[in-house]
C-alpha cells in the first residue's frame, strides 16, 4: 500500500494534475476570500468555508479521474494486480494519496486564517470544526469519485461521470426541498451538504463525522468490489 501511495503522490507532482488542482483551488478560494472577507471586512471564515465546499464538486474529479481509469486504459493495472499487494491495499494507497493532496491544499488556505487573525478575530474552536467538516466532506467526495473512476475506461469519462455524481449529490438538497416529508428526510440524511451544516455553525457533530467516514468507507469498499468483480467476470 505504501508503494502505491508514494507512486500516486509522485504521479500528482510529476504531471500537471497536482499543480492544476492546487492552483485552481487556491485561485478560486482566494477570489472567494477577497469577496467574502477582505472586501466585506468580515472575519467570518465559516461562511467562506461554506462557499468553498461547493468546490469539491468541481475539483474532486481532477484528483481521482486517473487513479483507476488510467491504470485500466494503459493496462498498468496488470503490474499492481499481479503484485503481492491486496485489492484493499491498492484502493487505499490511491485514496490516501488523493486525500493527502487535498489536505495539503487545505493547509495552504491557512494563510487566509493568518490574514484574518492579523486584522480581526478568529475563533479557533469554531474554525477547527468548520475545517474538519470541510475536510471530511472532501474525503467523502474523493471516495465516491474514486469508485466512479474504477467503473470507467478512460480518465476523461471518469472525470465527467464523477462530476455528474457530485452534481447529483448537490441536487439532493434541492430535491429534498420539493419532496414529501419522509422522502425529504431520507434525502437530507444522505446529502453530504446537509451533513456539513452543523460544522458550518461551528458545532462538532459526531453524527456527521460518523456519516462522512462511513460514506467514504462504503465507497472505498465498493471500489474494491468493483475491481474484484471485473477480475472475476
Amino acid at each position: 500500500m505504501t508503494a502505491i501511495y508514494r507512486r500516486e503522490m509522485q504521479g500528482y507532482f510529476h504531471t500537471a494534475v497536482g499543480y492544476v488542482y492546487m492552483g485552481v483551488f487556491l485561485a478560486i478560494s482566494s477570489v472567494m476570500f477577497y469577496a467574502l472577507n477582505l472586501r466585506e471586512r468580515s472575519s467570518d471564515l465559516l461562511a467562506f468555508i461554506g462557499y468553498m465546499s461547493y468546490l469539491w464538486m468541481l475539483l474532486s474529479p481532477v484528483l481521482t479521474m486517473r487513479l483507476l481509469a488510467e491504470e485500466r486504459r494503459t493496462r498498468t493495472d496488470q503490474l499492481l494486480l499481479t503484485s503481492p499487494v491486496s485489492l484493499p491495499g491498492v484502493i487505499l494507497g490511491k485514496y490516501l494519496a488523493a486525500v493527502s493532496v487535498m489536505l495539503l491544499t487545505l493547509l495552504c488556505t491557512g494563510c487566509y486564517v493568518l490574514i484574518v487573525a492579523l486584522y480581526g478575530r478568529v475563533y479557533p474552536g469554531e474554525l477547527a470544526a468548520g475545517y474538519l467538516g470541510f475536510a471530511l466532506q472532501g474525503c467523502a467526495f474523493l471516495a465516491m469519485d474514486l469508485f466512479v473512476s474504477g467503473l470507467c475506461r478512460s480518465p476523461v469519462t471518469a472525470a465527467i461521470a464523477a462530476f455528474g455524481a457530485n452534481l447529483a449529490m448537490w441536487m439532493l438538497d434541492l430535491l429534498a426541498a420539493a419532496a414529501p416529508g419522509w422522502l425529504a428526510a431520507v434525502l437530507e440524511f444522505i446529502s453530504l451538504y446537509a451533513r456539513n451544516e452543523p460544522f458550518l455553525m461551528g458545532q462538532l457533530s459526531f453524527a456527521s463525522i460518523v456519516y462522512d467516514l462511513s460514506f467514504a468507507a462504503a465507497f472505498l469498499a465498493l471500489g474494491v468490489f468493483t475491481l474484484h468483480a471485473r477480475r472475476v467476470k
Partner: peptide, 30 residues
Amino acid sequence: KRQIGFLPEKPPIYDEMTVREYLTFASRLR
C-alpha cells in the same frame, strides 16, 4: 505472487516515470 515476475504483452509502464523510479516502485511493490 511473490514467486512470480510478470511481463505482460504490453509492458505495464508509467510514461511519466524514469526507468530508475519505475524499477524502484516495482521493487517496493514486491
